[in-house]
């Protein structure tokens, strides 16, 4: 992109004093970019303000919460965190974090493995009924989740999986998330097959080709899949709400809601403090893997 600010490049007129026109252009460019950045900053601030307020408010006392509009606490306190962590249940918030992890990790690993297998099959092999099967996968992508909730619930109830993590793990571990399958397929399609053929000539079996050649090339896509799955599962409220009934097994999302339910006068500072904590894992993971993540969703990981 060429912008005004790049035009009067001093390298182009080495030594010469800037002409009248150049000075004018330069000033115009400076005003332009100042304007641009101000607008962007204001809009950005408006967008993150709720988040800033959330963090600030989590250090307020409960009584200050709605009395002062600013986000800066007048007497910062971590009491909200201490009380919130204890919760009104026999368990600490740490217990719920562990529950969340215990849901997320198997689910994410299962998703990565199953999506890779299914996508590899669709992207690289010809088999009878492939088109119909692929159409089915894409169709489930378009299907609203709500539609399948009740049949799924009944199914899992009949198998006897209610109040366990199985209904949360199993569908994903069987490549139930069509979106991820689709994402990996698209990524695979952009990778030339020659490397896989070379591996076959080198004597690799289909599985060896997948593990040693395809998976390493798929890494950016797989990291995105894991990230998405991590964040979505962390934030998933409805799934655990439907299938998990004992407090002992609640993940963070339900535990947050729990503190609203059981307290008569809402301890907002505790809720906000725990919300801040609930946000951190996703944020940390995202920033750690940001580079791969962006590479992965901007499909086509092959460079010349």
């Amino acid at each position: 992109m060429v912008s005004y600010s790049e035009l009067p490049n001093p390298a182009h007129n080495t030594g010469d004093a800037p002409t009248q026109l150049e000075i004018k252009l330069r000033r115009k460019a400076r005003i332009n970019s100042a304007l641009r950045y101000t607008v962007l900053a204001v809009i950005g601030l408006i967008m993150v303000y709720p988040l800033i307020w959330l963090v600030g408010a989590s250090f307020k006392t409960n009584s200050e919460m709605f009395s002062s509009p600013g986000f800066w606490p007048s007497e910062p306190t971590v009491q909200g965190y201490i009380d919130g962590w204890k919760t009104s249940t026999p368990y600490t918030f740490g217990h719920f974090f562990l529950n969340s992890l215990w849901i997320i990790i198997p689910k994410t690993i299962g998703t990565a493995i199953s999506c890779t297998l299914v996508a590899y099959g669709f992207a690289r092999f010809e088999f009878p009924g492939k088109n119909i099967l692929f159409a089915t996968v894409i169709a489930t992508l378009l299907l609203p989740n709500v539609v399948t909730r009740i049949p799924q619930y009944l199914l899992f109830r009949d198998i006897g999986w209610l109040d366990s993590f199985l209904p949360l793990w199993v569908p994903s571990a069987m490549a139930g998330d069509a979106f991820f399958v689709f994402m990996v397929i698209q990524f695979l399609r952009a990778i030339p097959r020659d490397m896989e053929e070379a591996a076959r000539v080198d004597g690799a079996t289909t599985l060896q080709t997948l593990i040693f050649i395809v998976v390493p090339m798929l890494m950016p896509a797989l990291i995105s899949v894991c990230l998405f799955q991590f964040m979505w599962t962390m934030n998933d409220f409805l799934g655990p709400l439907i299938y998990i009934s004992s407090v002992e097994k609640y993940p963070v999302s339900l535990a947050l809601k729990l503190s609203i339910d059981t307290t008569e006068a809402f301890a907002w500072n505790q809720i906000l403090a725990m919300s801040v904590l609930a946000l951190t894992p996703s944020l940390v993971v995202f920033f750690m893997a940001q580079k791969y993540f962006i590479e992965g969703i901007s499909t086509g990981g092959v460079k010349g």
């Binding site: 030339p192 020659d194 490397m195 070379a198 390493p216």
Partner: peptide
């Protein structure tokens, strides 16, 4: 057999 491909097909990683 061994094969050499037009675009080398080296394993990129």
């Amino acid at each position: 057999i061994a094969m050499v491909f037009q675009n080398y097909a080296l394993y990129p990683h």
